[in-house]
Computed example of a mutant assay.
Amino acid sequence: MTDPAIKPSAGQGAENLLFLTDEQIRGGIEAFFFAYRAFTSDPDAILEGLDYGRAHHRALHFIARKPGLTVSDLLDILGVTKQSLNRVLRTLLKDGLVESRIGQRDRRERQLFLSVPGTELEQQLSKAQRARVRAAYRAAGPQAVAGFRQVLEAMMDEAGARRFREMRSGEAAE
Results as ranks from 00 to 15, higher is better:
Met1Glu: 08
Gln12Ser: 10
Gly13Ala: 10
Ala14Gly: 07
Glu15Thr: 09
Asn16Val: 12
Leu17Glu: 05
Leu20Cys: 10
Thr21Val: 04
Arg26His: 10
Gly27Phe: 01
Gly28Asn: 14
Ile29Ser: 06
Ile29Asn: 04
Phe32Val: 12
Phe33Arg: 12
Phe34Gly: 01
Ala38Phe: 14
Ser41Asn: 08
Pro43Asp: 03
Ala45Pro: 01
Glu48Cys: 01
Glu48Gln: 09
Asp51Pro: 00
Arg54Glu: 05
His56Asp: 15
His56Lys: 04
His61Ser: 03
His61Trp: 12
Ile63Tyr: 08
Ile63Trp: 03
Ile63His: 12
Ala64Glu: 14
Lys66Phe: 08
Leu69Tyr: 07
Asp73Ser: 07
Leu74Ile: 01
Asp76Tyr: 01
Ile77Asp: 00
Ile77His: 01
Gly79Leu: 08
Val80Trp: 11
Lys82Asn: 09
Ser84Ile: 00
Arg87Ala: 11
Val88Ile: 15
Leu89Trp: 01
Leu93Phe: 12
Leu93Cys: 01
Lys94Met: 12
Gly96Asn: 12
Gly96Trp: 08
Glu99Ile: 13
Ile102Ala: 05
Gly103Glu: 07
Gly103Phe: 03
Arg107Pro: 03
Arg110His: 10
Arg110Ser: 04
Arg110Glu: 05
Leu112Trp: 03
Gly118Trp: 12
Thr119Ile: 02
Glu122Phe: 02
Gln123Glu: 04
Gln124Glu: 13
Ala128Glu: 13
Ala128Ser: 15
Ala128Tyr: 04
Arg132Tyr: 15
Val133Gln: 07
Ala139Met: 14
Ala140Asn: 04
Gly141Met: 10
Gly141Cys: 05
Gly147Gln: 12
Arg149Thr: 10
Arg149Tyr: 05
Gln150Met: 13
Leu152Trp: 00
Leu152Cys: 10
Met155Ala: 14
Met156Leu: 14
Ala159Arg: 15
Phe164Thr: 00
Arg165Tyr: 00
Glu166Gln: 14
Met167Gly: 00
Gly170Lys: 07
Gly170Phe: 04
Gly170Glu: 11
Gly170Tyr: 02
Glu174Gly: 13
